[in-house]
């Protein structure tokens, strides 16, 4: 539900990904980490929900 919800709010779906990985599946972890990094790089630096210095009135 979180994935659908954030996507609904307009946040790029590539930024939130899920996987079941056991502690003994190191290879899968490394591969998936690379995939996710690639996917997020393609989307680019985040422009939404980024906190810089607090915007004040």
């Amino acid at each position: 539900m979180l994935k659908r919800f954030l996507e609904h709010a307009g946040i790029e779906p590539e930024r939130l990904q899920f996987s079941w990985i056991s502690s003994s599946e190191a290879g899968k972890f490394a591969e998936l980490a690379r995939e996710v990094i690639e996917a997020v790089r393609k989307v680019g630096p985040p422009k939404k929900l980024v906190k810089g210095r607090a915007e004040v009135s």
């Binding site: 919800f5 954030l6 929900l49 980024v50 906190k51 810089g52 607090a54 915007e55 004040v56 009135s57």
Partner: peptide, 12 residues
């Protein structure tokens, strides 16, 4: 504060 990112975070 009323920073838009913080406010959005609160609501989400």
């Amino acid at each position: 504060s009323i920073d838009p990112t913080d406010t959005m975070t609160f609501h989400l």
